[in-house]
């Protein structure tokens, strides 16, 4: 028997270790030609499908054929029953005032998603701008702004929201978003400022100055594009929190005014007849849970993808 050549005699465990990653996919996960969807685990795929479904349904609610009016109370007009189980015309049954639960879930998604996405957008724009300015220009403005942010953050947002919405009396979605914005900007400002601080110290900012770029232009062209990913990452985690916040307000009766459908409002409505019929509470609760879980799962997936990518860099 001839001796194997070139060091292949080493125990297989060692050999495997020495050989290292065998292909690009092992070395840089996420770098292969697979589609984004193909790279997800089955759970993340499920979450993605669910979110797409929820977003599409909410966006196209008015166009879905055969979807009943979410506020139509059939028993008033004698063509519906309260607390009905699933039927052909009401797939998820009806609530205690005979409204279609599925329709209310879909229109409720609209409220939750508009609330969450608008607030995230406002947070990125307002917080991102203020934070980048504070982090890059420094000085008195930064001191003042950050003192304000710290004070603001120490104030409990939910209590503030409850207080303001109670005082306002008028509670449509626009008002809710505006009130929410008051409490959303500080955290975005803080993240943007921290990122801008570290970005400002980088050589490419000095390099930009050394080729004669104005400070304003550096802020827009160099700082902000590098602050944005951090804000987007935070937003993805912030979205489910905002969805829960909206549901909490609605549950307390301080969300959008009834009879506008919202998940929290539906649970609150079902609470009164929980012992008679639990389903009008279960459906929105499950929907809320799945949506929030899906956002969190997807946020986590995006984070690992980003980590793999920066490791590859």
């Amino acid at each position: 028997m001839s001796k194997p050549s070139g060091g292949t005699w080493a125990p297989s465990v060692l050999r495997r270790e020495r050989r290292g990653p065998r292909n690009a996919e092992q070395m840089f996960p996420g770098s292969s030609g697979k589609s984004l969807f193909g790279k997800m685990s089955w759970l993340t795929r499920f979450c993605t499908v669910w979110l797409i479904l929820v977003i599409l349904a909410a966006a196209l609610a008015d166009l879905i054929p055969g979807l009943p009016d979410p506020n139509y109370q059939g028993f008033v007009f004698g063509d519906g029953k309260t607390n009905e189980g699933p039927t052909a015309s009401h797939w998820l049954g009806t609530d205690n005032v005979s409204r279609d639960i599925l329709a209310r879930l879909i229109y409720g998604a609209r409220v939750s998603l508009i609330f969450a996405f608008s607030l995230v957008t406002i947070g990125i724009i307002v917080g991102g701008t203020l934070g980048s300015i504070a982090g890059y220009f420094r000085g008195l403005l930064e001191t003042f702004l950050m003192a304000l942010v710290d004070t603001w953050l120490s104030f409990p947002a939910l209590i503030g929201l409850v207080f303001i919405t109670t005082m306002l009396g008028m509670r449509n979605l626009v008002v809710l978003v505006l009130v929410g914005a008051v409490f959303v900007w500080p955290s975005y400002t803080r993240i943007a400022r921290a990122t801008a601080l570290s970005v400002s110290g980088q050589d490419f900012v000095t390099a930009a100055r050394a080729i004669g770029t104005s400070r304003k232009r550096i802020l827009v062209r160099e700082i902000f594009p590098n602050v944005l990913p951090a804000l987007l990452a935070y937003s993805l985690v912030g979205l489910p929190v905002l969805i829960i916040l909206e549901s909490t307000l609605s549950f307390l009766g301080l969300g959008v005014e009834i009879p506008t459908a919202s998940w929290g409002g539906m649970i609150n409505q079902a609470r009164q007849d929980l012992l008679i019929n639990i389903w009008p509470a279960v459906w929105p609760a499950v929907t809320l849970f799945m949506t929030v879980y899906s956002f969190n799962n997807l946020a986590d997936w995006v984070r690992t993808q980003a980590a793999a990518r920066s490791a590859a860099i």
Binding site: D203, A210, I211, G212, E222, N226
Partner: peptide
């Protein structure tokens, strides 16, 4: 000074990993 930077006087930095903007 800004009028001179880039057009009259320029600088090359040590680490090309950090002297280029990663997002541009």
């Amino acid at each position: 000074m800004r009028r001179l930077w880039g057009t009259e006087i320029a600088m090359i930095f040590q680490d090309p990993m950090t002297s280029l903007n990663p997002m541009v």
